[in-house]
Simulated assay, not measured.
Amino acid sequence: MTRVLVVDDQFLIRAGLVGLLRAAPGFEVVGEAGDGEEAIALAALTRPDVILMDIRMPGMGGVAATEKILADASDPLPRVLVLTTFDLDEYVYGALRAGACGFLLKDSGPERLLAAVAAVGGGDALFAPSVTRRLVEAFARRASHAGRTDEPLPDLAALTAREVEVLRLTARGLSNLEIAGELFISEATVKTHLNRTMTKLDLGSRAQAVVMAYETGLVTPGGAV
């Protein structure tokens, strides 16, 4: 049973999501929140497996709430699935950096939503690698023009040569299976390298790893695989 917290400031959308999840087998709605502060309180109280997190809300938005929830939660951390109206919403990029596992468009159909929640609850990333690449590249371009003013980036020198290669291919949009074929190693070995990379760089999700690879310059928007 996947325990879900639904966060959206629009009552009708929130009610629709809650109703859909409650009607489907395998899901339990443990709470619903209308803003970020309420989401933080309910996440601590209910400890959901998955949080459906709206981005644009009055008061505290979804990015700040995601960061706070993941910073305060104990293992196992909830997996945050961002809900957005636009597939290239600038706030989605912020949510991925904060540790969200992926994003879902609000106009997705019921079957897509249920499959996404189930996948995220099972430990998978929601979106296809190609979607990750398109999202990150779009905002990496903006970041390169605006310049960076936030915290220092992780030091990739902590990684082995193989871990760097796996990270580079991950950021280029390849799946674990495709990376295994590219490097002539097993898929399990790819997962091991990626997990070690995330541990060394203190990253909480594959999405964060992809974002970090672009921000450190390991890969560049539009560059070759």
Rank of each mutant, 00 (worst) to 15 (best):
D124H: 12
A100I: 10
A161K: 10
A140H: 05
S175Q: 09
A143F: 07
A116G: 14
D150I: 00
L135F: 02
A100C: 09
Y91L: 12
G109T: 06
D72E: 15
P58V: 12
Q208R: 11
E151K: 13
V63Q: 02
S186C: 09
P48M: 03
F184D: 14
A119N: 10
V210G: 02
P58M: 12
L113G: 02
M198Y: 03
R148M: 06
V6N: 02
P48V: 11
V219R: 00
L167E: 02
A44R: 15
F11D: 13
L114I: 12
R22K: 14
L174K: 07
A146L: 15
Y214G: 05
D89R: 04
G94R: 04
V30E: 09
L105F: 01
D8L: 06
S186D: 10
V80E: 04
L52M: 13
C101I: 05
S108G: 01
F139W: 09
L177Y: 09
M212Q: 03
L135T: 08
D202N: 14
L126I: 08
A125I: 13
F27T: 03
G173P: 09
G99P: 04
P48F: 04
D75A: 15
L174H: 08
D202I: 04
P152W: 05
A209G: 14
V164C: 05
I13Q: 14
L114K: 09
R97S: 05
A213R: 01
A95Y: 01
G173N: 12
L5K: 05
M57A: 11
D49T: 12
L194Q: 10
A100F: 08
M57F: 08
C101A: 10
G99H: 03
M53Y: 01
A157E: 14
A65Y: 02
R22T: 12
F139I: 07
P76M: 08
F11R: 15
V7W: 01
Q208E: 15
Y93H: 14
M212F: 01
M198G: 04
G121H: 01
P76W: 04
A41N: 08
T216A: 09
I55S: 00
V18F: 02
L88K: 13
R134W: 06
